[in-house]
Design a protein around this nucleic acid. Structure first.
Lengths: 247, 247
DNA sequence: ACCACAGTGTGGTCCGACCACATGATTCGA
DNA sequence: TCGAATCATGTGGTCGGACCACACTGTGGT
């Protein structure tokens, strides 16, 4: 394994990478926290001994990762502010690599099934009364007969996101939402609008909620699996976890 | 719900965002495929009617998302080439938001447990003889008594990544690796080196492999869970999926 | 007290220039 | 003739400067 000189191809370090690295370090060490505001681009460039374009490229990278937002103008809203949720960044990454065929739509849906099944089990175990009320309200709101498709989608997102939150794992929530948005954006581009009629989807939601209310994690997971299979019928690969009749 | 004027805050569209959007569109529509090379920055800027800095910032964004790599010089290796795995990009995003306390280390480990448990079940069902040989070879290689910590870690990564691949879901593989790298990088920064002695970890690997060989998905998942609990003892929150004694 | 206005600082954009690098054609020498 | 040093070319990387649009802020005037 360790035969021959075996050089590494020399690490090319670009200026903006060093800028990103330093900001990352400030974040990791806790010297920079969420809500903090970075110095202005000009000041930062001077402090780091690089040109403003390098600082700007670093900003773009951090912005793409959902770490900061940049606002022009003056006042408390202006400048580069550390904030951010990882969600949109993840959605973007997943969407791009979906387009590059680095993985398939089936993979995405299957992963969402895996994650959301787990999340709903947690929800069935730990949901409090207030949580259940929120879910009931969402389900009820989706029964409005003259609901715009966009609004319907918003409520659907809220339903699933709330369930994910009840798992108590913020990362799972983020993943779940990113996976859902990725699939949705992808099929928006290819196929027509909502495939299955909303009636079946709303019935699924009620079944999921009923299982959560009944504190039955297994039934809740099954209901979620059935729901996703109905919502994404074009996805062929849907595996079972426990009840595998094979072998 | 639709009361009042209800303005949207005006979409600020920056030039580089438009550039990114156009490249994204070319990718989504299939006109740009993996392996393709983009025009030079100057040519692209001229074609799009923007300045070169805007094109460069777009490049940085796409590069940060793991979509392309940029090489200077001349020849077939030079230029902006579409390629890329999503892995490093995901690791970067997760690490940053871990530092920003948008989610906790426990969340990350728990999510990895969830994903890898599922993956190993698939591996136990679908692994072929060649796959098992690969795993056996890795496990054997890790028994070398004078193995550098770095090399040990490489092999450990290979073991877990191979299992994830056997699930047949490329996205799960990517996630698994990103989660693992995120935790590792994080504790590198905080705590000392390898916590548990390698002997127990290697024994865990053997147990996981044995369950896969035995085609026992349930046992394999349990073995993975036990392994992760041993590897990350500082993580308090480790839930069970099915065998929950509570309730 | 109120309002209009210039001042100031922010990010956004662009231009032009130069550098380092890798390649390929060219030229010069043996 | 063949080889090797050299130059030309084109790439991304970096920089400084300049200008713009924007949003706030203080300072005038009314």
């Amino acid at each position: 394994m360790t035969d021959g000189p075996d050089w590494r191809p020399v690490k090319r370090v670009r200026a903006f990478e060093e800028v990103v690295a330093q900001i990352e370090e400030q974040i990791a060490s806790g010297r920079l926290r969420a809500g903090d505001k970075l110095p202005g681009e000009r000041a930062l460039a001077a402090a780091l001994g690089v040109g403003r374009p390098s600082v700007r490229e670093a900003m773009r990278v951090l912005e793409a990762m959902g770490v900061l937002v940049a606002n022009p103008g003056s006042g408390p809203e202006a400048g580069a502010i550390l904030a951010g949720s990882a969600g949109p960044a993840l959605t973007g990454v997943l969407g791009l690599h979906l387009g590059l065929a680095n993985f398939a739509v089936d993979d995405v849906v299957e992963t969402r099934l895996l994650i959301e099944s787990w999340a709903v089990e947690g929800a069935a175990r730990h949901a409090g009364e207030a949580d259940l009320d929120r879910l009931h309200a969402i389900v009820a709101a989706m029964d409005d007969p003259d609901l715009s498709p966009d609004r319907f989608n918003e409520l659907d997102t809220e339903f699933h996101t709330t369930i994910a939150e009840l798992s108590g794992n913020a990362l799972v929530t983020t993943f779940m939402r990113a996976l859902r948005d990725t699939v949705r954006r992808h099929q928006r581009r290819a196929v027509a609008e909502l495939g299955p009629d909303t009636g079946a989807l709303r019935a699924d939601h009620r079944a999921i909620l009923a299982a959560i209310v009944a504190r039955d994690p297994r039934a809740a997971a099954d209901a979620v699996a059935a729901h996703l299979r109905r919502a994404y019928p074009q996805v062929s690969r849907v595996r079972e976890d426990a009840p595998s009749p094979e072998n």
